[in-house]
């Protein structure tokens, strides 16, 4: 009986800071200013302007996720192969940016990428014309990768390092070349880590508004920015909540999909 009480603080926390806010968001999402029920706030996501922001958000998040994946998986493979005692240090350095304030990092990146920034200065030494990177979708993706990369590296690194060396040896013993070992053994066995990483990068990217704000110069509107403006500038909590709710549906669909994979494999998440 007593065990029940151990869970009490968490239940209070969950109710106050997770369930209750969700109920509020849902309430605002399904009501209009007069307090009547409406689906208008949800369907507003289909409005051409919002659709554009949504598609751009999905595109940039996808690009960021793929880039993070393309960086993290080979890194994990390289670290696995390296005969080194302090692989942990490399991982520590890779995730070190997590310890710094995110906004600070993005502001620094803004300075580096700006027209008269450090990047263009270095390029000019080699006689390359200044690039206008800042305020483009590319700059936003760059910032997102920079910010969220650690969340991809950690689960994938853990999953890849967890693979028993005997399995790699066994695959080679049975005639598998190095690429074949990666494709048939390492990749499938680190699937859960990869799914974890994708979830933890894709979803924050999708809802991010600070990075597009700073690196997009306010010109590029992602769904996160639209929602932010509805709340802060237009003070239209109903529309903001409605769009948030619609976004959440995307996220939930994604989670259900990855959850299914996990159930199939009956293994715990690495992260």
């Amino acid at each position: 009986m007593k065990r029940k009480y151990i869970a009490a603080p968490y239940i209070i926390w969950m109710s106050a800071f997770i369930v209750l806010p969700l109920i509020f968001v849902a309430y605002y999402a399904f009501t209009d200013k007069a307090g009547g029920f409406t689906l208008k706030n949800i369907t507003a996501i289909l409005d051409p302007l919002h659709i554009k922001a949504t598609i751009l958000s999905l595109e940039l998040s996808l690009a960021c996720t793929i880039l993070c994946l393309l960086i993290s998986f080979p890194l994990a493979l390289v670290l696995r192969r390296l005969n080194m005692n302090n692989k942990g240090i490399i991982i520590l350095i890779m995730i070190l940016p997590m310890w710094m304030n995110s906004i600070l990092r993005i502001l620094a990146l803004q300075m580096i990428l700006s027209k008269n920034g450090i990047l263009n200065m270095i390029l000019s030494w080699f006689g390359i014309a200044p690039l206008s990177i800042i305020n483009t979708p590319g700059a936003i993706v760059f910032g997102m990768v920079y910010d969220f990369l650690p969340y991809m590296i950690l689960p994938i690194y853990n999953a890849v390092m967890d693979i028993d060396n005997d399995l790699i040896d066994a695959a080679k013993d049975l005639g598998a070349s190095n690429p074949s070992v990666i494709w048939r053994i390492i990749l499938p066995l680190s699937k859960l880590g990869i799914i974890s990483g994708i979830t933890m990068v894709f979803i924050p990217c999708l809802t991010s508004f600070v990075i597009p704000d700073i690196l997009g110069g306010g010109k590029i509107q992602l769904l996160g920015n639209v929602i932010e403006q509805e709340f802060i500038t237009s003070m239209n909590w109903h529309l903001g909540s409605g769009l948030s709710f619609a976004l959440m549906i995307f996220v939930v669909i994604g989670l259900v999909f990855s959850e299914k994979q996990e159930k199939k494999d009956r293994e715990s998440l690495v992260w």
């Binding site: 399995l167 066994a170 695959a171 013993d173």
Partner: peptide
């Protein structure tokens, strides 16, 4: 000659069956 090119196969102590 690398392992994968040898006409020799191994049975491992901890079986090393591919779990997936």
């Amino acid at each position: 000659l690398p392992t994968e090119k040898r006409c020799i196969n191994t049975v491992f102590q901890k079986y090393a069956l591919f779990p997936h």
